[in-house]
């Protein structure tokens, strides 16, 4: 399988000359969600369904910009968000097709509430 970059670009097309010419962006050397799905299947075949789940969550996150990912991470750290904020983020993620990450946020809202890890 020849994997394409997140931008859809073929890595064989990426050379030192094309980099020098400014014709390559980080998205061209980032992973494509379908490749992460492929890697998830490999992980499952090697007895690690949790690693597969991680790759599937990651596939969803390829659609998000770097700053969005960093902001979502920040929101999940202890005492950063209210349950409502976490649920809202979950809804937003779900609307963008990131259903697995949405589930992670919903679960966090529930557990953080019980363990007093929400914003005070």
């Amino acid at each position: 399988m020849i994997a394409l970059g997140a931008s859809g670009r073929d890595p064989l097309d990426i050379t030192l000359d094309s980099v020098r010419d400014g014709a390559v962006e980080m998205a061209d050397v980032s992973i494509h969600p379908s490749t992460l799905e492929h890697q998830a299947q490999v992980a499952e075949a090697h007895a690690n369904p949790q690693l597969a789940s991680n790759f599937r969550r990651a596939a969803e996150l390829t659609a998000l910009g770097d700053h969005e990912v960093l902001a979502l991470y920040e929101a999940l750290r202890p005492h950063r968000s209210t349950a409502e904020e976490l649920t809202t983020l979950a809804d937003q993620l779900e609307n963008r097709g990131a259903v697995r990450n949405a589930a992670l946020f919903r679960e966090a809202a529930e557990v953080y509430s019980r363990r007093s890890l929400l914003k005070r």
């Binding site: 992460l36 992670l104 679960e107 953080y112």
Partner: peptide, 21 residues
């Protein structure tokens, strides 16, 4: 929690890395 994380934030971070390959 003193380390300023939870298992959920770490799980997300883990996926954040994988999402960039």
């Amino acid at each position: 929690v003193d380390g300023d994380d939870t298992p959920w934030s770490k799980a997300f971070l883990t996926s954040g890395y994988a999402s960039r390959g």
